[in-house]
Structure formats: structure tokens, C-alpha cells
Design a binder for these strands. Structure first.
Lengths: 239, 239
DNA sequence: TTAAAAACATGACGTGGGTCATGTTTTAAG
DNA sequence: CTTAAAACATGACCCACGTCATGTTTTTAA
């Protein structure tokens, strides 16, 4: 099959050609549209996935119908790579395409076998999970401590970095993100997101809406995202 | 050395006796008191650790001096097991003992070698990281969506489950947790934590303070922790 | 045992941001 | 091009929680 698209994916970069060919035969590619969930919260987990093209939202719902977007996956991202989920567990959240996407899948057993035969691949997965964990913890800290404006500013910066396309002295986001999407990513309501984006727009920090969001002044956003490191340390620790 | 304390730790359970002896020789045990940080945010990460005895707080500080407790580690928990941190990175948070603790450590290189030689150990780490990741995501969701009372109730339940000692029809926590500790774990202020705990105490759901916290009515707390699944679904998705 | 230091507790007050309501603009489908 | 649906925007209201202030109780150390 095809001229080896796997070599570009970090997980597979250390594999031998032979092993890579073997995996290429086992792997299945599937396409999804915006309205087809890849899986839903509570579904039984059966496969390991890699996002090949497009973007996917990982979403958790609250019983009241509100939701948080835990993470936006970009091409190359792994999902369901943790054994905990695969080992008879159910998905802790939904995976919802944000447009047309293409996903590579490997069954649980094939995935296990792969990791067992290739310690380097296992190390890659450990590395990936580790950085996801750090991200998640950082996100929790931000949610717990920062006011809405800072959280939104921080989000825009992260997006510019990870899904942005430089255009002169501003950055265009390659992902379609409505105000609602932004709000869900930083735990606030649409109204609040709209108001703050309105403020940002007035101050020429951003422009455009979902169709094409543009970051016009990254430096100023950076500044807004960082709370003032107040001088007096309120609660010192140790000793 | 000692009669193999490693066999009780999940990471090592699938190792051959030979391998386990080897690891036992490489591993270093260190003791820390309450006022000695094991490491601080920003320190260079050099070793992989396992908590042998005691409890440890993983803490992140905001520039203003507020803090969030990302996780309370209990005996058997791994830390710094993610390669991302070990591979030339710095610690994303502090590790602060909550009393006298005992920690087993393995240098980065020995740890890598161990994982490479023992695919099963690597899978264990993947499993561990995966469940930590889910926990962290769940925590983020709770922080973002739930009001203070629900978060505290949920925390007490989790603690009862993971650090509780059954005593008749109530549960005594084996960890010393001040109101401040509780507050830091669910992103609120001491005052709010005190007030809510006061309410809980009046309703006979809990009693005692840091010295010895007792959960008296787990069922009622469970109920408080779960928000009312309101009937009308506000924002349905799909199709 | 006593004194200093944590931890706990409670009240008064202000506000960020959630909720609801309503209108405009943009996008997508026929 | 039209039209319905989705996304964006803005105002009015209010309450959960953070902040500050002050007092009591418990713990720790000497």
C-alpha cells in the first residue's frame, strides 16, 4: 500500500521497515464528517487511533448539558493510546470531528503486540501521554486560578502557536472555531466569550469570527494572559 | 538487601526475579520531612520516583501566590514517570511531603533501560499515565462546571475512597488535610472551604478537622456531589 | 505549662461572570 | 437569490465566591 505515510508519525519513526510494513497492513483508515462522532462518552473502547487529517474535539458533557472541550486534536495526535481505556474500559469523553477528518486505527490486540515488540514505540507513547498529562494539569491550574479574560487570551496564544498560519505580521487560525467552541475550551459561557472577544476586537488584538479568526497582536495577548506577578508573596511555604 | 519490597509495587510485578534483584540494587531510598520539598517547580528532572510511604502533594503555584494541588500521591504511586519530563525537561510542579515520607528513586538512564528490557513494565507505565490523564481531565471538567459545594463533596468522596479507613458506619481519613489543603485541591479559598465544611458539619455529613477528618454520611455527600441531571437537554449535538 | 503560631470560623461587602432575553449578522442550503 | 438556521452581539439582573477584617480554637514548640 501507499508510499508509507506512517514514517511521518512519531510513534512509528523508530520502527524497522519490515515492522512498518506489517503495521501498515493492519491499520485501517476511516473518514468521518462533522456530524458523525468517532465515539461517544461511555462507548466501549476497542481500538487505538491516530488522527491523520482534520481536527477533532475531545468533549466531556455535564449532566446539565454544558460541556468542556478537553483537547483539540491535530494531525499526528494519538488517541485512546492509554491501556487503561483499552483494557475493557469505556471512553471517558466523546471524540467529535470539527470538519471532515481521516483517522487511522489499530485494534487493541495489534496495538499491544506492537508495543511489546518495539520498546521504542512504547517509550514514544509514554512520552506522548506524559506531555498530554502536563497539558491537562496546566489546563486545570489555569481554570482554577485565572479570570475569564486571561484564560481566553492564553487560549488564543496556544491556538496561534499550534494551529496558526503566519500572514505578514498576524496569524490566521487554520481551524474553524466558533465563540461557543472557544468558550467550551476555557470553561465559560458563549456570552462571556463574545464580550471578551468584542473587547479584544475593539483593541485590535484579534479580528474575524469562526470562518477565519485572525490574531493581530500576539505580544499584547501574551501580556494579558500573564497575571501581574504581585510583589508580596501571600502564602510562602517551607520552613 | 531486604526481602524484596518491590514485588508489591505494580510496576515491578511482572519482572523476573533476576531483573527485580538488579533493580533493587540500583534503586535508592530517600526520606523527606514535611518542610523539605522533594523537588520544586522548574527544577531539572533527573530521576524517576515511586512513593513508598507517606503522602505527597503535587502543587502548582500561580504568580500571585495562590496554588492548586494537582494530585495527592499515596504509597505505590509513580512520579516523574513520563519521559517528556525526564528527557531534559524541568518539573512542571512541586512535590511537597505532607508528613514524613519515603521515596524510591531510579536514575533516568536506569529507568529507560528497565523499560526497554521489559515491555510489560512499559505497558504498566502507559496504563498508569493513562489513568492519571483521565483523572486530570475529570478534574478539569469538575473545576470548570461545578459549584464549590459539589466540588468539595466530590473531593471528600474521593478521599474517603482512596485514603479512608472504615470505622463502624463512618470513614476516617488517614491523611492530615487542613481546610487550606482541601481548598487548594478544588480551586477555592480557605474561607469558602471552611464555610462549606461548617455546613456539612451542621448536617452531620462530616466531623473533625485536619487532625482527624471523619466522613459520617457518604451517601448524602454522593448525592450532593452529583448535580441534578436536568430534564431538558439544552444543547443537543449530532445531526 | 505556657506562649506563639497555625488552623478554624464568621461576618460584611463587592464583583466577575452566569442567566435570560432580544436583536443583528453571517453562513449554508435549496 | 432567497430563506432558514446558526453564529454573533449586547443589555439587564443577580448571586456565588473572592476579599478583607477580626475573633476563637487548636496545635506545636520551648
Amino acid at each position: 500500500m501507499k508510499p508509507d505515510p506512517l514514517s511521518k508519525i512519531p510513534l512509528f519513526e523508530h520502527l524497522s521497515d519490515r515492522e512498518r510494513r506489517k503495521v501498515a497492513e493492519e491499520i485501517v483508515e476511516t473518514h468521518y464528517r462533522k456530524d458523525e462522532f468517532i465515539f461517544r462518552e461511555g462507548d466501549r473502547a476497542t481500538s487505538f487511533h491516530i488522527l491523520k487529517a482534520g481536527t477533532v474535539k475531545c468533549v466531556k458533557m455535564s449532566p446539565e448539558g454544558r460541556q468542556v472541550t478537553l483537547k483539540v486534536l491535530m494531525p499526528g495526535d494519538l488517541f485512546c493510546c492509554d491501556v487503561a481505556v483499552l483494557d475493557g474500559g469505556t471512553h471517558p469523553g466523546c471524540a467529535q470531528p470539527m470538519g471532515d477528518v481521516s483517522v487511522l486505527s489499530l485494534t487493541k490486540d495489534e496495538y499491544y503486540a506492537l508495543l511489546r515488540r518495539n520498546p521504542d514505540a512504547a517509550l514514544q507513547v509514554i512520552q506522548y501521554l506524559g506531555s498530554r498529562l502536563q497539558e491537562a494539569q496546566e489546563a486545570a491550574k489555569v481554570l482554577a486560578l485565572n479570570p475569564a479574560e486571561q484564560r481566553l487570551a492564553a487560549l488564543l496564544i496556544k491556538l496561534a502557536d499550534r494551529a496558526g498560519l503566519r500572514e505578514g505580521n498576524h496569524v490566521r487560525l487554520t481551524v474553524r472555531l466558533t465563540r461557543q467552541d472557544l468558550a467550551d475550551m476555557v470553561g465559560m459561557t458563549v456570552e462571556t466569550a463574545t464580550r471578551i472577544m468584542g473587547r479584544f476586537k475593539r483593541e485590535k488584538l484579534v479580528s474575524g469570527t469562526a470562518k477565519s479568526l485572525i490574531i493581530r497582536n500576539l505580544a499584547k495577548l501574551q501580556q494579558l494572559a500573564t497575571p501581574v506577578p504581585c510583589v508580596a508573596v501571600k502564602r510562602a511555604h517551607g520552613s
